[in-house]
Write a protein that binds this DNA or RNA. Sequence first.
RNA 1: GGCCCUAUGGUCAAGCGGUCAAGACACCGCCCUUUCACGGCAGUAACCUGGGUUCGAUUCCCAGUAGGGUCACCA
Length: 493
Amino acid sequence: MDIRVRFAPSPTGYVHIGSLRTALYNFLFARKNKGQFVLRIEDTDRTRLVGGAIENLLDSLKWAGINHDEGVFIENSELVQKGNFGPYIQSERLDIYQSYIHALIDKGYAYYCFCSKERLEEVRDKQKSEGKTPMYDRHCLNLSKDEAEIRIKAGEEYVVRLKVPDNEEIRFHDLVRGDIAIHSSDIDDQVLIKSDGYPTYHFAVVIDDYLMKITHIVRGEEWLTSTPKQVVLYNYYGWNVPDFVHLPTVLNKDKKKLSKRQGDVSVTDFLDKGYLPEALVNYLALVGWSPKDNQELFTMDELIQEFSFDRISNTGGVFDVDKLNWINSQYIRKADNEELFELAIHHIIAAGRDTEENIRREKDRYLKIIDLVKEKLDHMSQINNHLDVFFGDEVSFENEEVIDTLQQEHVTRLLNAFMVKLKETEAVDEEFSANIFNVLKNETGAKGKGLFMPIRAAVTGQLHGPDMGKTFIILGKSLLIRRIEFVLDALND
RNA sequence: GGCCCUAUGGUCAAGCGGUCAAGACACCGCCCUUUCACGGCAGUAACCUGGGUUCGAUUCCCAGUAGGGUCACCA
């Protein structure tokens, strides 16, 4: 049997990082087993729809390199659907759900319910106050078919509910958690069709997974306890139950489900900060799954090669930004400077430093800077922290220590000597950079930190930073001269 | 509260009856670098508790405890 899996988000906004991991695991499993990966849109809650959410979702998946074979795609900024099991958007499958719900009602496996929301509320409140688990009291279970039809014709609002079997142990197998059994008396008579005619998740997911021939349902752990409801449906229809794989939750530092309040949770948040997609995917793969050996850095192909459900852990994992940063920094160091430049542009503009036009005009210079500082970056938005040093005639002193360094007695003489050499040289090139400190040492007698630090302080305004010689070359002769002039003036005042 | 899942260092995690209980991130120290970073080396730090089963439990079973999930006409 061909392996078929699906990722089935609802278009209610940004893509959560946990969802991305679910999509990733589905994708890896499909690729590893030469199966099909379907993208289905679950938009049955008409009240929570967010415009543009599907496009955003598709963009995020594409950015991450998680590609599907079937379902909803975007082409020439139009949504299109591909595959033999469509439509892949649930709101376009209403007639399908209707026919399947009638089969259920006819067999007595589902029933009409006319209870008002107010009544349901009352029943729930009463049950809660008695310390019971709130559940539908089956008030409408025994309405005759005739009566139901009369009330429907009269225009009364209704829903269709699942008739959960009495006194039965509902069992299913999960590839991560093993055998799970829940007693039917703990399961509510779930609404299957809402009063607006749309199906609920629990109904639509079963119909669609069946019709789309899904073999493995890989989804978040939050679905684990509602799985029996779906298993009941499979049994009523006489369909084979697919394999379930419930993934451990991605948690915050406080071990709660990762949520927006506590920082970045959406894929676009990470894109905006300048994380590389390969790095995010690499890190995410490692929260909840581990390889056989101790490998930490994976290409997508390597992940596909190594991935298997039996190495998924069964405990929720905290999303550790420190480790993400480490992985991202590894990728940045290996990345091509051109690629990093394109990424950096976005952040330099966002920081209000310069226009795209100007940045591109100085591309060569930026490429050298990036090459020099990329090993200091966790993510590309940090590029801005390293740019001041390379731009502007004036030097801003980072702190008191810098000023103390420059106010040492020998420094004016040292800087003047440096100035002379700068003016003498044709260009500040590698040769100049390689020799200048020795020359200054011989001429001024300054040495060690007394030589090196004042120059660094004068040129950059800081006491630490990238290699001095390379910095000289990037700055160039004229800019260096203007800066030394600026500092000498400042020291005179 | 009912039901379900889970329990190894601060974090991710390996382990699947007998190990001095891996590795990575973070942290600390040293080396390299006349700075910072990178890199290299070393270090601190863990099997939730109590009962069983067993010659022997981190590993299997039960209970407790703790954490998480779920109890909607949301997914």
